[in-house]
Design a binder for these strands. Structure first.
Lengths: 516, 516
DNA sequence: CTGTCGGCACAGTGCCGACAA
DNA sequence: TTGTCGGCACTGTGCCGACAG
């Protein structure tokens, strides 16, 4: 009985110490489990879950950190804006030049909601940066689009009746999930049945959320979730007031700015209204490279409900401070805009200059546009408005526009090291213009909502061309999007509608279907 | 078709403004719903849910606020202690004298987890206080114990076969819940069946949690929940780092201390290891009224697993700073203690002097002890150790003890207003000594855990005298405590054990039973 | 190609008295 | 007095092909 174990046990005190060590290791593991740092998170899947517009700065690069934007992330999550009880931090500028020290990818332990942790080091000027030692950590691996297309799921054995197989997939925490994949029905279709609803329930997915499949470097199937747009869960605050959270954000930055000491932030792309850590090059290009003024036309990319990208057009109607008292002179959302389309009123009516595309921004990097395969792919006005802009940029330059430094001139006054860092970011995202943008989410088709059986369709990218979303070939992940229509609506006819809390349980009971 | 509505509508712009107003009111209502402030929360029920040891300071009274304790509440909830990235706030003392401006009771919208919001105004000295205007708000109504006992539930009509009725109860948010109350079985017993599991599931109750019933001033039945000891849910932090939360707490207090401006805190009694807002009188009595030193014996009240109160005895083994670097000289948990009983090692080994009872603390208010009906009610050592202390306090006074000011002397040097405020708090809690303490939770009996049917017993206070918990008459609320034993353990024999995630669903499916 | 329906099997839940500790 | 069991009814879920748009 357990002799081997007995023999390996040291005696007395040492044994006790050993027990304590084990206990500590257990606690450490728990800690790591909770923080999601025990295993390196698959970055490709992380980006896929983050959505098509999200990019993270490169370690070592220079960025501007915007406390206002960070505060907005808190405001959205707590559904409370900053109040008058929040102190001013006169020594905290509206934009803080920082060097990125560390970027780690995380996901909520339960729901797989993704977020990133960044350590930022305030610097006085570009000269203060120092080489970031390579700790042996691989730089976060980035999705490499344009990989060869392939069927994501293993092919079925069609000699079976019906053809079926078990799909074993891993989530961001390396938990395995098993889905039954079967080809049946009339007409024949592919379905995910057994195991699917357990997954949907466990991740607390709601109608409108998306499920992504991807293959990792070992060719293992992985699965992630992408919450529907801005439908974030409010974080319960029975312990900490929203004010305290706002203050925590601002005070941390203020303290770090004063001491030039690093500080840590969480960035939750799906919750955050706008990115608040902006690569220096992107900021400079927008702020110094472009002259914006009232009346100017612009375009801006948004994620569509189908999780694709779409450009919306608008007009700048004013330039003014968002918060003249607390943040005078801030560049954060200092552009007042009007959107061309009605129904955009719920969209923000203030944007920052680095979020938008203007005729000038296209002119600054003319070479980039030439390498773009589909520069006019999914824009609202498509060839008509933007096309003419790109082809005749000079006609759109305001008289004073050229007085500002375009990037090519600016680079002369900075060190080579800085220029390298500025150019280094892998995923500086110039939506719709730059070829280095993240892969498009192209495959979205929504399936039926059944009172008892919400079915969501999976479509492989290369086979879909509908809903106004451009088909992009060579994409390496698939996506399932749960139907957003209220299941209650379609439940009118049948008596299978049984009663209370039906909607919730319905969403959780679902299968996925698609067809090649 | 809608003519009345048409007529009442103003025209054009005014109409639009009206719509906006309605929209704003809707937003306001949402805001209030989320914050739980729309309806005043029944304070009696709130305190019942908070547990037997919790008290809140009176509006207008003076308190000491302890940043360290507040930080501990955050640490427990995030399961992260403060790190080195958290700045020092040299201008923030370890204890901040404040006047209480506002106290509001809250409960989590979903789970009914209770918490309080307080607005604290730092003051330089006792002379700085000013009369708090009475805003027409009733001071938070406090549970008045010693009310006449009565059957909490309406009597059943025993001419029915079986006798049954519907109980309609309201929770803290004024939502109504309906439970079927039936008297059946062999032998006969009272049961709550239909509706019970819905309630348990909605409030996300787990085995070990308690359900409380109470009658409000309109004699309506009300229901609340009390989570098991320190089994708090970790608040997910995908948006805000734990560091930011700690900083938010400290920076808010530091800013308020510097400006003498009010700041807002949340106090979550069930999550918080120790109260961090201490009435001035309680603090003075402990710090100046008692000489503590190594070797001294003390008692301290804890909430038992059955949600009663129990005194644990221990010995002070040292007096030292908990955090010598960050908070030198702090009184917060500056007493190192050892507990008499083994198994208390998981209990804190550091306490603050105002948490404990010493022989001197009994001597300061000797008159209070005489009014206590059961001074030795549930103490561990009961009559033996404590009894002799109370009767012979002088024998325990250290030589230097009398050199410190007892309260009676101190009052001479303060204004009458101050003395009034000091005396005013309704619920300054001197566990086991003071007659104004909150009512004891006396009725706890735990019921069976069934694989398919967790049954929890309700026992009326006046009828229970078991489990080593003293029976207290004239209590006005009842309590159900879900069984803490793991349902999985007892599921070994039967095939009704069906598989995955059984435990959770089992806990949600339960009824309550009891007997007079 | 995909959304919805009716049908059907069955697992899980909920309610019940019996019974024993 | 109360914890647990077997029994039983029934609801809700999950899987299926049919079919229509």
């Amino acid at each position: 009985m357990g002799s081997v174990e007995e023999k390996s046990k040291p005696e007395g005190i040492v044994n006790g110490a050993h027990t304590n060590l084990l206990e500590e290791m257990k606690l450490l593991k728990e800690f790591q489990d909770q923080s999601g740092i025990r295993k390196a998170i698959n970055s490709e899947l992380w980006y896929a879950c983050a959505g098509p517009l999200v990019s993270l700065p490169q370690v070592g690069s220079l960025v501007y950190y915007f406390p206002q934007g960070h505060s907005e992330q808190v405001a959205v999550s707590t559904k409370r804006s900053a109040t008058s009880q929040i102190p001013n931090y006169p020594n905290l500028p509206s934009q803080l030049l920082c060097q990125v020290h560390n970027v780690t990818l995380h996901a909520d332990k339960d729901t797989d909601e993704i977020y990133a942790q960044m350590s930022l080091q305030p610097v006085n000027s570009e000269r203060d940066v120092f080489p970031i030692p390579d700790f042996g950590l691989k730089p976060s691996k980035h999705p490499m689009p344009r990989r060869a297309a392939e069927k994501l799921f293993p092919p079925l054995d069609f000699s079976m009746q019906p053809p079926s197989q078990e799909l074993v997939v891993r989530d961001l925490h390396d938990n395995t999930w098993t889905f039954r994949h079967i080809y049946r029905g009339q007409p024949k279709r592919h379905l995910l049945t057994t195991g699917w609803s357990l997954f949907v329930g466990s991740k607390r997915l709601k109608a409108g959320d998306s499920v992504l499949f991807i293959r990792n470097e070992k060719s293992q199937l992985m699965v992630g979730v992408r919450r529907a747009n801005r439908q974030q869960t409010t974080l319960p605050s029975s312990v900490l007031s929203a004010d305290s959270m706002h203050i925590g954000v601002l005070a941390a930055a203020a303290h770090a700015a004063g001491n030039r000491s690093p500080f840590t932030i969480f960035y939750n792309p799906r919750a955050c209204p706008s990115d608040f850590v902006i690569p220096l090059i992107k900021f400079r290009k927008a702020v110094f490279g472009t002259q914006v003024s009232a009346g100017m036309r612009f375009g801006m990319m948004f994620e569509t409900e189908e999780s694709g990208k779409r450009r919306y057009m608008g007009t700048i109607v004013g330039v003014s401070d968002l918060d003249p008292l607390r943040w005078p002179g801030s560049k954060w959302r200092n552009l007042q805009v009007e959107w061309d389309e009605p129904g955009c009123s719920d969209r923000q009516n203030r944007v920052s200059s680095w979020e938008i595309e203007t005729p000038e921004s296209l002119f600054i990097f003319p070479s980039l546009t030439s390498g773009l395969k589909r520069p006019l792919q999914s824009g609202f006005l498509g060839d008509t408005e933007w096309g003419s802009l790109v082809k005749k940029p000079l006609a759109w330059l305001p008289g004073s526009g050229n007085a500002n430094l375009p990037y090519a001139s600016m680079s002369n006054i900075y060190s080579e090291q800085l220029v390298n860092m500025l150019m280094k970011p892998q995923a500086v995202n110039y939506p719709g213009i730059c070829g280095t943008a993240l892969p498009e989410v192209s495959a979205v088709k929504v399936a039926s909502s059944d009172v008892t059986n919400v079915q969501a369709a999976v479509n492989h990218t290369s086979h879909l061309n509908q809903s106004g979303i451009m088909s992009v070939e060579n994409q390496n992940y698939s996506q399932i999007c749960l139907d957003q229509s209220n299941a209650m609506n379609s439940s009118s006819s049948k008596e299978r509608v049984a009663g209370k809390s039906l909607y919730l349980s319905k969403v959780e009971n679902s299968s996925a279907s698609w067809n090649y």
